[in-house]
């Protein structure tokens, strides 16, 4: 069964079907394996080939279906700029853009990004490798201390501007409140977004 499943090629369309099958299948496997209770059903790996485009670069990965986009990015493509702060969708450190919209990569299965364009902090710089205006603004405004939340803040900031939620300071604070910063560089993060807003809209 595992083998059969692993051979299913997933696309954006049939992923939901695929995952539903898996969800039903797993308890069955568990039940059948009743003779060896200590052998966890998790040990049967459902892998699938996943095509990701990250920062315009295509990647063909063979991933456990449960691999999050975050783990795929960090552990399988070697792009470590995207950070893991909680792995629960609660801190924002793992924010990336999928087709230009911000998502929490720890709450997204890698297969869900199959065929879509993922942008991480490493892909934000322009082609001539000069910084994106948002990155430059974060430098100009000292919008970080330890820097661990920064990639997520910047990706979220770019998303926030494109969503049209950066009209005022108050709005920015509200729409950036999914990105925790324990160093509390918040005043400068907001200042940076205000600085880079207009140029980011154009970019």
């Amino acid at each position: 069964m595992a083998n059969r499943l692993s051979r299913i090629r997933l696309s954006r369309r049939n992923f939901m079907v695929g995952s539903a099958t898996a969800a039903v299948a797993m308890p069955l496997v568990g039940a059948r394996a009743g003779s060896q209770p200590e052998r966890p059903s998790e040990t049967i790996r459902y892998t699938a080939p996943v095509k990701l485009t990250i920062n315009h670069q295509p990647y063909e990965l063979n991933l456990d279906l449960r691999t999050t986009l975050l783990d795929a990015i960090r552990d399988h493509t070697g792009l470590t700029g995207t950070k893991k702060g909680c792995d629960h969708g609660q801190c924002g450190a793992c924010t990336v853009l999928i087709n230009g919209t911000r998502v929490l990569s720890c709450l997204t299965f890698a297969v869900m990004a199959d065929g879509r364009e993922v942008t991480t902090i490493e892909g934000l710089a322009r082609e001539d490798s000069s910084l994106h205006p948002m990155q430059q603004a974060f430098i100009d405004c000292d919008a970080f201390q330890c820097g661990y939340c920064t990639p997520g803040q910047i990706m979220s900031a770019v998303g926030c501007v494109h969503e049209g939620h950066a009209a005022s300071e108050g709005e920015i604070r509200e729409y950036m409140s999914g990105n925790l910063c324990r160093c509390a560089a918040y005043p400068n993060v907001v200042a940076a977004i205000l600085q880079a807003r207009d140029e980011t809209r154009k970019a």
């Binding site: 995207t82 893991k84 991480t120 490493e122 910084l131 820097g147 910047i154």
Partner: peptide, 20 residues
């Protein structure tokens, strides 16, 4: 500016979990 400023915004500042 913080000495790692550019690395922080570019995502190239290496923390232990980022090391090869």
């Amino acid at each position: 500016r913080h000495d790692s400023a550019h690395k922080h915004v570019a995502g190239t500042a290496v923390y232990i979990d980022d090391m090869p």
